[in-house]
């Protein structure tokens, strides 16, 4: 995380205004190696530049955020979803496609930088809203997997600790504050978050499938 070289970041958003805003926010703190405004351009750019982190808008012309990730199965770049949308299906779809985090465009500069660094080092980034979605999706005690769906009970429920961490995230706590609060290390908080992200991506819970499918139909 503390490299001497700044992180190489690609910006994917169809609104020039948003890209300009993010560029200004991150100026001098990361190395923005390229920008794209649609799915095809983004795929080409990421292939060509091989960045550390891609800031990926959820809605894009020519497909959507998930389409970009799906077109790059072999990339080492990590994706951080950036959106103004609050719709659960948008957010869950892009996470399930492989993004390692989700933040809203209202995020402050320092928080955005932290999120980029965290994603670059392979950790997960949960905005309060995403944490809320996860809690909602994993709420019912019984997974109720479909009859033919093979379902891994480990993936379909959260541990008590994971729930605690998510609830604190939803309440607006930063990782450091959660670590202090639960008297655990930041590393442990990060590993809980990563575990939850994995469940979010792989679980067959009905709500997650439904949200992801609602978006995939478009």
């Amino acid at each position: 995380m503390t490299q001497s070289d700044p992180l190489r970041v690609v910006l994917v958003d169809d609104h020039e205004l948003v890209r300009a805003g993010v560029r200004a926010t991150l100026a001098g703190r990361v190395d923005i190696v390229g920008e794209a405004g649609d799915v095809a351009g983004a795929v080409e750019l990421i292939r060509a530049t091989n960045p550390d982190v891609v800031l990926l808008d959820v809605h894009l012309p020519g497909g959507n955020g998930p389409a970009v990730i799906a077109s790059l199965p072999a990339t080492t770049a990590r994706f951080l979803a950036l959106s103004v949308s609050d719709a659960a299906d948008d957010v869950i779809a892009v996470i399930r496609a492989g993004a390692r985090g989700y933040v809203t465009k209202a995020i402050g500069g320092d928080e955005l930088l932290t999120a980029i660094e965290r994603v670059a080092s392979g950790d997960a980034v949960f905005s309060p809203r995403l944490a809320g979605f996860v809690l909602d999706a994993f709420r019912a005690q019984q997974p109720e997997a479909g009859p033919s769906q093979e379902s891994d009970p480990e993936l379909d429920r959260l541990t008590n600790r994971e729930r605690e961490v998510l609830q604190l995230l939803a309440r607006g706590y930063a990782y450091k504050e959660i670590a202090d609060r639960l008297t655990i290390s930041i590393k442990t908080v990060e590993s809980h978050a990563s575990a939850v992200l994995r469940k979010l991506q792989l679980s067959n819970r009905r709500e997650l499938r439904r949200w992801a499918e609602a978006r995939a139909l478009e």
């Binding site: 809203r129 944490a131 809690l135 909602d136 709420r139 939803a170 607006g172």
Partner: peptide
């Protein structure tokens, strides 16, 4: 003052 609301259930 902006209020970020998250609700579950």
């Amino acid at each position: 003052v902006p209020i970020e609301t998250v609700s579950v259930g």
